[in-house]
Amino acid sequence: MLSALKTIWLVLRHMFHRRVTVQYPETSNYLAPRYRGRIVLTRDPDGEERCVACYLCAAVCPVDCISLQATEDEHGRRYPEFFRINFSRCIFCGFCEEACPTYSIQLTPDNEMSEYKRKNLVYEKDDLLISGPGKYHDYNFYRVAGLAIQGKDKGEAENEEPPVDVRSLLP
């Protein structure tokens, strides 16, 4: 008896609480920038693809839904020839973002990805690549890596000495 009254009281009280349900899609909830939704590939501050096709995201992916193939431009800059994420398998765990050594792969707060056809959930590089740097504005992997690419010769990266003169005999 007492418990029944308690329950009725609780329900009555809730009638005067603020409403939690929102009228989606007219209104939507706030999702923090760190929310793990749709995956994007970002560009470095110079506007070049950040992805260097190191395969770490693919390796760490627990559902193996990332596949890619590395290739190089004529100056030795490495990038993915194709980059495919099968979102019908993705569990949005964010391991790929954690594994990415170049801040290329990032999870965004966008979660509106439903499709009528499963095949449309297979995103290729064109679908993934965005035009900006995402959450990390300044990082440019090739500026710290030792590899020479177009526009950055040996010894021109951050924290690098100019190339050694092998023929020097100075002590």
Partner: peptide, 15 residues
């Protein structure tokens, strides 16, 4: 055991 991409490498051909 680290072999990757099982569920994506053929996804563009067949789901």
């Amino acid at each position: 055991h680290r072999y990757s991409g099982r569920t994506a490498m053929r996804a563009h051909i067949d789901m």
